[in-house]
Write a protein that binds this DNA or RNA. Structure first.
Lengths: 369, 369
DNA sequence: CTGAAAGCGCTTACAG
DNA sequence: CTGAAAGCGCTTACAG
């Protein structure tokens, strides 16, 4: 009898549905014979609802395969539980590692992530930020291509933005970066300690903190060792493989070739290695190569770097950690009352990069140390 | 005078704003002295609005730095211009290539992408699908970990789901896959043509179409050549590096070692190479290695594969193309009236994988062909 | 061509 | 403890 009644109620509700539509809280409420407020309370696991009603609501939800409309909820509560992540390059192993770190903490906290590709282009970055803003994301994780974008535009009061990888000069807001300067310094010092004097440097984009800091670290190490940097050993790349390739060709064709080359990022290192391959230069026999970033992050403890010919000596950045930390920082910012009062976690977190010595670097043949 | 009036109006609107809030269409309407309907028309570039009003509205929007609330719009129009993408592995170069292809077409079409990681776990996949549904994405791109998930549950009438990479047996709906069976067949045939008879195979997950099809292709090629597959040459992996490593160790320790090993995906190949490295086995001198997928996709025409020791002979899947095609298929589905009437583009699109011959495969030393 | 009003599906004070 | 009602910020018939 009761069962029969229930089935009839269900059918009544089912029948009222228009084709292609989806059940709403009202349908559930009707079927469970409660108010929508009660359904809402059950959905949001608020306590204080009579167990009988909870059961009835749950049954109704199941019967209708009800999925609460997160869009409507977002509009009402003015939070989307979504974060935007914009990175400059989808093909980069490093940035994908970062994204992996971000996703892990986001998912755990119940956030979804909207992933955007700026292609290292300022206007695309601006457009994406604008879209993310319109979509009312709760916060943004940004590897900015434009050192001034963030300062230039305050997107929304109380819209937290955590920068990572790159920061504008003098940036004070929340950010997670790697100590590029000292990493490059250590790398260069290592080359010098091995006896290298003729060290070439392939710089990345100097308008980005990463490119500039790495160049600074290199320069400082050379200075500290009282070595001069020859102009023709200094190549200006743009972080892409092609520029590393060009730089490599030029350096290797020099009559007075460098004994070691330090490349500012992995893409350019790939280009450099390709140039060497074409010209028949071997490494480290003919020239030592020091890279920044593994060409591709390892898998579950299996390093690709070790499978390369040669195994590349590099500065390894903790990509996953960067993403993880940045996401945690962002979520903490979101959890805060954000009355503008306490901002304990603002500030730049600097992670250490690791000197990863393998065997693409050897002492120069004519070691004069 | 007029200017003065405008400034006063702006200040009036500005003053009414509560802290930390954001301007709405009403604010813009008030400032521009029009109705919200007119503002909406201007925002959505509907024609028929008097140019004077358009100008006034645009000025007001600029003055307030107004960003239309996409959440509210989504609720009203019942479309989010968002697609969900769920992949099983964020660390996989192949899947990241796919995502790059997806993002390119999504961005161009004005869609945002919600990226989800199922970690190759059925229940996580289900949870993500449920979340995507609640978030009312317009469509889903899914590399399913559960061959039956899609059939088991019809998420929403008219919620298009395009599968990629893996499909349930007998699947008829929209999907983009690679012809794994014939690719594996060709690869095996190539090994045989070189004189290999003792060929080992490291299988992937056989509950997924990719794993099964590759195994089928291998098996068929062996059969067609009237070669038997020794049981101890058949290893059952799970697509992860560790399983390739284990399989590699076992195969290499066999007293009667295979002359060639065919590995079903890149992660397992990494594991295999690691095992070989540890045991001092060289390739192709000691044993030939044929891989499925490049270990990592190339960058801008610079192939990493060519930098490996040895350069790996593989089946290369067109990851970017898969993502691109799948996204286009999904968007086409979204554009259709979807009256349930015409479904011209339903169906499985099969892409060809490329046999990429480098030098990790050589004739066996004791060629008996 | 433009404005007033209803409503998308929720949540949340506010009464009872 | 539960229900009726207002409202989040838009869009869209519907009048004028």
């Amino acid at each position: 009898m009761a069962l029969c009644y229930k089935r009839l109620a269900l059918q009544a509700v089912l029948r009222q549905m228009s084709e292609g539509s989806v059940y709403t809280m009202r349908d559930v409420a009707r079927l469970a014979r409660v108010s929508v407020a009660t359904v809402s309370a059950v959905v949001n696991e608020k306590k204080g609802v009579r167990p009988v009603l909870v059961k009835r609501v749950q049954d109704a939800m199941k019967a209708l395969d009800y999925h609460p409309d997160h869009v409507a909820r977002s509009l009402k509560v003015r939070r989307t539980t979504t974060i935007g992540v914009v990175i400059p390059d989808f093909a980069s192993g490093f940035f994908m590692e970062v994204v992996r770190g971000v996703e892990d903490v986001a998912r755990t906290a119940g956030y979804s992530v909207l992933l955007c590709n700026s292609n290292d282009d300022v206007s695309q970055e601006q457009r994406h930020l604008s879209v993310l803003f319109s979509r009312r994301v709760d916060g943004i994780l940004l590897a900015t291509t434009d050192p001034y974008s963030v300062a230039r535009r305050q997107y929304r009061p109380n819209l937290p933005i955590v920068l990572f990888d790159r920061i504008p000069p003098g940036h004070q807001g929340p950010a997670v970066v790697v100590d590029n300067k000292s990493a490059a310094y250590e790398a260069t010092k290592y080359l010098i300690s091995l006896g290298h004097r003729q060290i070439a440097f392939i710089a990345g984009r100097l308008d980005l903190s990463t490119g500039m800091d790495r160049a600074d670290g290199f320069r400082k190490a050379m200075e500290d060792a009282h070595l001069t940097v020859r102009a023709d050993y200094l190549k200006h790349g743009d972080f892409k493989a092609a520029s590393g390739y060009e730089a490599g060709l030029e350096l290797l064709k020099l009559s007075d070739r460098p004994t070691a080359i330090f490349s500012s990022n992995s893409q350019m290192t790939v280009g450099l290695l390709k140039a060497m391959q074409e010209l028949g230069s071997h490494c480290p026999e003919d020239v030592s190569v020091f890279g920044f970033d593994d060409l591709v992050p390892g898998t579950e403890g299996f390093s690709f770097g070790a499978l390369l010919k040669p195994e590349l000596t590099v500065i390894a950045q903790p990509g996953y950690q960067i993403g993880h930390q940045a996401a945690e920082m962002l979520l903490k910012l979101l959890a805060e009352p954000s009355d503008g009062k306490s901002q304990p976690d603002e500030g730049v977190v600097t992670l250490k990069a690791e000197l990863c010595i393998r065997n693409s670097v050897a002492p120069p043949h004519s070691a004069n140390s």
